[in-house]
Design a binder for these strands. Structure first.
Lengths: 355, 355
DNA sequence: TTTTTTTACGCAATCGTTCCCGGTATCGTT
DNA sequence: AACGATACCGGGAACGATTGCGTAAAAAAA
């Protein structure tokens, strides 16, 4: 069950030439006569010759392919990012190898080893929620592997990074809830170690204090897998529903958390925005068709993929080691829809404690 | 910017052995003394040696990786399939390379060439809507490349295939619409050349005639890109809304068509199921949260991925060419929700939110 | 005509690994 | 003592492609 491909040797043999001549003819070298070139080119075309990239990779120690690791592709945000990555990569003759960590540090490591041993020329990564140990990544980076982080970045490693202004996104969303008249705003956040979780949480807290509201730690819940497992969202919501400090609105910190919250609230018979206002990060294109249409913070995912890839290719193709790294920060967009509709005709609270 | 890896030569040099001995020691050959083995193994472990899969691929003409081509990963159906594929592949030590055709025959061909030249040991494919010319695939297959088709299969090529009972799925959905009291049922279908489109259309027609209803060709609309481009769905709906034969229900034949129809109908101010009943194929996990919750035909996508991969690995690892091919047909599931509520019914069905 | 230059091609090494041949000890057997 | 068996290890070709170097023949210059 093996699959025989046409090689440069077949051409050489058939034409009575050496492999070197054929190789040079195919690469249009000046030291091959026009007639021989024509001969080789035509024959190669005829038998449908394609150079073997594996042999090339072995020789050149590069593969013209880049590796991408995300937690899961069944997530609009990540699939949009990947589309952005592919669009730039293909235009530059690079192939993209996608792999999923499924929020597992082990699988992330496995994929990483596979990709590097397969000689990808660079990596674009959003780390899993579970990853605590970045030493392997760090070693890779130290040994010269070009890496670009996006979304969930690793502060310890100095390289190009692409993120959105998570702080501002969260701040704006929370402020929007406040301005809509919500008084007790909870948040369902991602794994606390994650950069995006920290930043979004900071934005949330800042919005509260800036508007004279207290930060209540019992209103902050974490989901270790970012909502990939629904029960953990259910658990978080259940905690929040304890009468003691029941909130009237929720800010969700990730795609799956946002829809997860809606799912749990509705399954428990609560209405949105009646019982709870809801806003969250999401790039799903179905949010406007949901019941209720969700107010969301949307990230420019496609563009993030493009930017990340451009940075990576720049590193890959640079002659000398890149030492001057930048962190590109794109801006989010707050799309206001039904799920955060103003609570009915009460006087708008005046923030008295603005600093 | 190159990335130096540890090779067998480094070990050989450091230990004063030949590469052959090191290679054999690592592969636990009987003709290497236990002491030498121990020495090599320990040193290999110490300097973190990993065999170079590229060199192996070149030598063995196999890569222990399989290629997957789908039209787009930002589609729950396909990402669920991929998860199924990966689960089996990883358990058997295979890696999965994913690529998207984005419904373009050109990109499909490009991906195909990339994957085969990269020595994937086999392919799992759902062809793009655009692909008319299967000669390249056929040649690949004739030359011994193991291929499994799923979803959108190619009748002309004899190999393993994994599909669902599209006919029955469509038949059941249409029957459900009829039983719900809808009188004029339109369908928005995929590119007519596609196997799935034909089968689903046949099921739709059969359900109509079996229930004494006429098949009206003007109620059958096609979307060449399966709803990936929203305007083509809009065009289809616009056609259907012409007063002459305005339907009261729509059966949509693919994931993006189903949500696309809802989107267009709602944007035009129509209500579902008030003005139109709506049911369609979909694997999105958000359909129950939509307004209205959508009745859908759901495919066992994860399982399909598993089945396809098992078939493929079986072909890859078979000593002799496989000639006895099978077509596995799984069954769909009709999930009845709000969007097809009986026209006369008053009682509101209880939506099941958590499954 | 002789020398130099140019043209056009082949040889062989290389990338990392495996594996077919060898080869050399160290035994044991006759 | 001589031979074969066994154990252990190295040399080198191979996988497909590129490329520096060498060189024969042809063309140009002397």
């Amino acid at each position: 069950m093996k699959f025989e491909a046409v090689t440069i040797k077949d051409i050489a043999k058939a034409l009575g030439l050496s492999t070197s001549t054929v190789s040079r003819a195919l690469r249009d070298s000046y030291e091959i006569s026009p007639e021989t070139k024509k001969l080789v080119l035509e024959y190669a075309e005829k038998i449908n010759y394609h150079p073997n990239p594996i042999a090339l990779s072995l020789k050149e120690r590069r593969s013209r392919s880049i590796g991408v690791i995300v937690c899961e592709i069944a997530n609009s945000y990540f699939s949009q990012i990947i589309n952005g990555i592919e669009s730039i990569a293909y235009n530059n003759g690079y192939n993209v190898i996608i792999s999923q960590s499924r929020e597992s540090a082990d699988r992330e490591m496995l994929n990483l080893q596979y990709l590097t041993s397969r000689s990808v020329d660079g990596l674009i990564i959003s780390v899993s929620t579970e990853t605590k140990d970045f030493s392997y990544l760090k070693e890779l980076h130290d040994r010269g592997m070009p890496i670009v982080f996006f979304d969930r970045i690793v502060d310890e490693i100095e390289t190009h990074k692409v993120i959105v202004d998570n702080y501002k996104g969260a701040y704006d969303a929370t402020t929007h809830l406040i301005n809509s008249g919500y008084k007790k705003i909870a948040t369902v956040s991602n794994a606390p170690a994650l950069s995006i979780a920290k930043e979004r949480l900071a934005g949330y807290k800042a919005a509260l204090t800036d508007h004279g509201m207290e930060v209540d730690e019992s209103l902050i819940k974490y989901c270790a897998h970012g909502g990939m497992i629904l029960t953990e969202v259910e658990e978080a919501i259940k905690e929040l529903l304890k009468p003691k400090n029941k909130p009237d609105a929720i800010f969700a910190s990730a795609d799956k958390l946002t829809t997860g919250c809606l799912r749990i609230l509705r399954s428990k018979g609560y209405t949105v925005p009646g019982d709870f206002g809801l806003v969250g990060f999401s790039n799903t294109d179905l949010t406007e068709l949901l019941d209720p249409p969700l107010s969301v913070i949307r990230q420019p995912a496609f563009e993030m993929g493009e930017v990340a890839t451009n940075l990576l290719l720049q590193m890959i193709e640079s002659k000398r080691p890149v030492t001057d790294f930048e962190t590109k920060v794109l801006t989010t967009e707050l799309l206001i829809r039904e799920s955060t509709r103003k609570k009915e005709a009460k006087a708008k609270p005046i923030p008295s404690l603005l600093k």
